[in-house]
Design a binder for these strands. Structure first.
Lengths: 191, 191
DNA sequence: AGATAAAACGGAGAGTGTCTCCGTATAGAT
DNA sequence: ATCTATACGGAGACACTCTCCGTTTTATCT
């Protein structure tokens, strides 16, 4: 079923370059936001601009790749929570983790908009991961009767992103976590 | 109390240019997002680049100015609602208006991040307007006993922005409005 | 109606970033 | 050792940003 594979082994240097670019890009995006100069990144990674653009045809492709591993961790956490906690608790735990995650790696913030499905079709991959996670959590909690049946997981994600997006005040994490509870309270089945 | 005013009457052409720039800028930002070329905007407004930059020293200053009038309308709506509805209803009405507003003028979306207090200090003016509106609404509803006392108006705003930010699916407005109710339900005083 | 100076204009151009093209280098297969 | 698919690099064409300053326009004064 896999694609035809009479292809030769991929070149090692290509892989190395790719990783080095990602490393540098992560640092640069963190440092100077999503508009960091791509040529700068290429230079710092000791590759030509062409190499960077071959690996990542657009700025967005690069950003997407940078955040993919982070996103994968969040997705993995969902599985763990679902296995060890009751539905509603695992949802809350995941949402709180999300908040912490953003707090720790502000990097992600600039990309969140697109992640949630912005005007462009970027982030399809990452988006699928995150959406899969929240879908699983919400559906389980709906099935167990803890949450309203009409709850759209994606809406919850949107709100969560809004909450997490900006660290504008020192007590940001506190208030973000309070809001997670508000969201969950509002999402419970009417008693 | 006013500043010294031995100044002469401001020049009419300057004012006209300023308005023309704003008009064109609004159109361009709507059409091609917040990265629209400023030189293009200047050209289309029949002014030199220098003129544009004199009026609006930075891209952000221009964006801020473009959105200011929109923001003022939202702030005005708050007053009206507060005068004619009960606290909790006026909060809900305003939040729904906010959603509609974004739906109608996607323009605002790109600016929302900053509006909510992003890394930069832009949008101070607009932000104050919006924050004032939600503050008033929430405080009134807290005072009337409809909402939890520990609710941070700003959190609600953040969530609202997250909900409104992206029109990723056709039924976006529907689900955004559902989420407004979830937020309000979660914000009510525990019975 | 001039005359005057404050206010505003415009656009050339320097600096920076984006992205492509294609000649060159190299890893893996034989 | 040879071959060739694969990948590399960086010059360069193009686009955008923003400033500088000589020129023009406007409000005001007489």
């Amino acid at each position: 079923m896999a694609v035809k594979t009479p292809t030769r082994k991929p070149r090692a240097d290509a892989q190395q370059n790719r990783e080095r670019i990602l490393e540098v890009a992560k640092k640069e995006f963190t440092r100077s936001g999503p508009n960091a100069s791509l040529d700068d990144i290429a230079r710092e990674a000791d590759v030509g601009a062409g190499t960077l653009y071959r690996h990542f045809p657009t700025r967005d492709a690069l950003i997407e790749a940078v955040y993919r591993t982070e996103v994968e961790k969040l997705a993995a956490a969902q599985k763990k929570f679902s296995e060890t906690m009751c539905p509603i608790d695992s949802l809350r735990a995941w949402m709180l983790l999300f908040v912490d995650y953003i707090a720790a790696k502000q990097i992600i913030a600039p990309a969140l908009n697109s992640l949630v499905g912005g005007p462009t079709k970027l982030y399809e991959g990452s988006r699928g991961q995150i959406q899969g996670a929240i879908d699983a959590l919400v559906h389980r909690a709906i099935k167990s009767g803890d949450l309203r049946k009409d709850l759209e997981p994606f809406d919850l994600l949107r709100a969560l992103i809004g909450v997490s997006y900006v660290a504008s005040s020192p007590d940001w994490r506190q208030s973000a976590k309070r809001l997670v509870d508000i969201l969950i309270t509002g999402s419970r089945t009417a008693k």
